[in-house]
């Protein structure tokens, strides 16, 4: 299924979401399958969750059930059992043999609002960044500082005005998911390093899509192989669905 983390609930961490989702399964009386053992857990597997504080329109998980259910009713029941802002968007039944969800995702599209940055300044910084082969940035992890290359995994980056006044720039990024994962924060640190680009306030990032990139740099819908009800000969040929295209209004839900 694809779900969203919106508005103020973007501050939900992955662990927070997992707990809320398990409770939603119970509230909605979903016949979920449990792992065996001393402390049984519902069979839920997550794929590459967005960081805490980052909104997302394209989070994915797989859920194991004990019996077949009506997927539309399941989506509605689960969505109603979660707080507003954690929303179940799409849900499909897995076609046996269609392969794992994780194998259908290798890249993310991010949209980042940069308050107080003019589109021209953003575009110039992006050009400098793209011209480099490597941009090393430092990230604080719980094991201390580590260096990573924020440039290598970036497939594309572009800047555009967020509004007619041009007081805020929007940065669109497509990033390949490698280890260690490069997050929007890392790219922003890189823009600061190469072009001294510093937004006036905290940038707001939203994940717009995940999937495999096709030859033309477009995202294949990870749910397509199951939605079609048949196993496509070539998974990568699934093609993007309309809702996978970035819509400008998405992810800027007002809060408060």
């Amino acid at each position: 299924m694809r779900y969203a983390k919106r508005g103020r609930l973007r501050f939900t961490s992955h662990r927070d979401f997992a707990r809320a989702f398990e409770r939603a399964l119970r509230r909605a009386a979903v016949p979920v399958a449990f792992s065996a053992g001393f402390s049984p857990h519902p069979k839920v597997s997550y794929v590459g969750a967005a960081p805490t504080g980052v909104a997302s329109e394209a989070e994915y998980l797989e859920l194991g059930l004990r019996e077949r259910v009506d997927v539309d009713r399941l989506r509605e029941a689960l969505d109603a059992s979660l707080p507003d802002g954690l929303d179940i968007l799409e849900l499909v039944e897995v076609v046996p043999g269609s392969g794992s969800l994780a194998d259908r995702i290798d890249a993310t599209s991010w949209r980042v609002e940069l308050p107080g940055v003019t589109p021209a300044a953003a575009a110039a910084a992006v050009a400098t960044f793209l011209a480099a082969d490597h941009v090393e940035v430092e990230r604080l992890t719980k094991d201390g500082r580590r260096l990573l290359d924020a440039r290598g995994p970036v497939v594309s980056a572009s800047a555009s005005p967020a509004d007619p006044d041009g007081a805020c720039a929007i940065l669109d990024l497509v990033v390949r998911q490698v280890t260690p994962t490069v997050r929007p924060d890392d790219v922003l640190a890189a823009l600061r390093a190469v072009a001294d680009l510093v937004p006036a306030g905290p940038p707001r990032a939203t994940r717009l899509a995940q999937g495999r990139l096709d030859d033309r740099g477009r995202f294949a819908d990870p749910l397509a192989p199951d939605r079609a009800g048949v196993i496509p000969a070539d998974e990568a040929a699934g093609g993007p669905r309309p809702e996978q295209q970035a819509a400008p209004s998405v992810g800027t839900t007002s809060t408060g």
């Binding site: 103020r8 609930l9 501050f11 939900t12 961490s13 927070d16 809320a20 409770r23 805490t52 504080g53 979660l82 707080p83 507003d84 802002g85 306030g201 905290p202 809060t255 408060g256």
Partner: peptide, 26 residues
């Protein structure tokens, strides 16, 4: 008025921001 618009930009700078946003079930 809600103070959330003023609070929100500060939340990425604090520990466990989720505790300040509300929106709990029920």
């Amino acid at each position: 008025e809600s103070v959330f618009p003023q609070l929100e930009p500060l939340l990425p700078r604090v520990q466990k921001p989720i505790q300040y946003v509300g929106g709990e079930l029920n």
